[in-house]
Design a protein around this nucleic acid. Structure first.
Lengths: 145, 145
DNA sequence: GTAACACCTAAAGCTAACTTTAGGTCAAGC
DNA sequence: GCTTGACCTAAAGTTAGCTTTAGGTGTTAC
């Protein structure tokens, strides 16, 4: 059993955030000793799932729904499986998006390295064909900045 | 030259968002014809950079700073290069984080597939050693949910 | 000439996820 | 017995990034 202060240190989360999560229903079965929250292994596991789902972009109210399903037992396995499959698709899509962003950023790094070496941006259009990653072609018709 | 409505369709952004970006200083050189915004190729390119920087997690006020630097010309190449290098590091870190999240999600997908097949979660602990990706070991001491 | 559009502004409103504030309980140490 | 420290609540406040509202302009179509 852990106090809220111990959990706060374990997860590097402010105490106020843990209380907020509790108020939002993310620890539906948490016990109390004369008013004081007793975090058990169950809540620790819940927090690991919370971090995962939050990291995948899920909102607090939907994480709460998941916690409700957990409490409902085996009748909700299908819903919970679906939730994680949707999360998988969402995270994979986000990673694809980040790859594109990264290609653009890498190009911009090259662009400013070159501009800095030359003292201006004027010769860059001529060098572009060799340096444009395919993701950026078509994006860069003209183009300072 | 494009109207705000045309740009809205090109970028799939609401007109209100474009006006908001303008108010926040993201199109510092935009021209007007009797009050009406004239989006040129310059603003189109600005929007591509905005999408990129936003996708990398940068806040609007910092994107505005970038636009100010662009207007200041060659004196700010170094700052702009640094900005994109910081973005590269941030996006790469975010992708590493997403990989971890994805490992956990994939494990959860497997977990619920198994629970659904078995009708309960009770036999899963015994199967764990073969199915835990390394990222999740140590995380999963006990653990339903 | 009037109705429909596409544009404009300023200001208020909204949402999520916290954080802060104000005030209170309780146990341990001096 | 009183102060310190860790816990508690309810409610108000904060921030980013929009969105909505209310009211106005200017051009084109009938």
């Amino acid at each position: 059993m852990y106090t809220i202060g111990q959990i706060s240190e374990m997860f590097h989360l402010p105490i106020s955030t843990l209380r907020y999560y509790d108020k939002e229903g993310l620890f539906p079965d948490i016990e109390r000793q004369s008013g004081i929250r007793q975090f058990s292994e169950k809540e620790v596991e819940a927090l690991r799932v919370i971090e995962c789902l939050k990291g995948s972009g899920l909102e607090i109210k939907d994480i709460k729904q998941f916690m409700v399903w957990v409490r409902e037992g085996s009748a909700t396995y299908a819903q919970r499986k679906q939730l994680f499959e949707d999360r998988r698709a969402a995270v994979e899509e986000e990673m694809r998006q980040l790859e594109k962003t990264l290609a653009m950023i890498r190009f911009k790094c090259w662009y400013y390295e070159t501009a800095l070496r030359d003292g201006n941006e004027d010769g860059i259009s001529a060098m572009l064909p060799d340096h444009l990653p395919p993701e950026i072609q078509g994006l860069y018709d003209l183009g300072h900045s």
